[in-house]
Amino acid sequence: MSGLKAKHQRLILVAIALIAIIGAGLLAAWGLRNQANYFYLPDQLVAAPPSVGQPVRLGGMVADGSIETLADGITVSFIVTDQEDARVPVRFSGILPDLFVEGSGVVAEGSLNEQGVFIADNLLAKHDENYVPRELQEMSEHQAARMAEETTVGLE
């Protein structure tokens, strides 16, 4: 390579770097399409369920009276709902996040099993007034808007 002109060496280096970067970009784009973890609301999950075992995130409200600790003392089952018809049974083994109560919002990370039960690996709940999972925050705004809509029906 010492016989090559300086310009050429530079060009070859730039070409190699470009190929590496473009290759990496394509690979990363492909990876993102396959590995990204999609977010579902309960009605979406019921209407068009993801395939069994595919990691997704489910966000909704914990249905009133649905939290139940199973006999082993560590597995909790509850129902995530959108306050309408859609109800998704969820099971979680682990230490429940702080402020996880009935009627509060939750985002569950995990996947559906064959029985249609959502097996959560991780639960995100409201930590404090400053830290709310993004999806939850927008959901409550959405619900507030809907609530306003419902309560003003027929007033015009």
Partner: peptide, 12 residues
Amino acid sequence: RVSVGPPYFNPF
């Protein structure tokens, strides 16, 4: 809405 986690970052 998506989230990207270890299944992407670790191998790639």
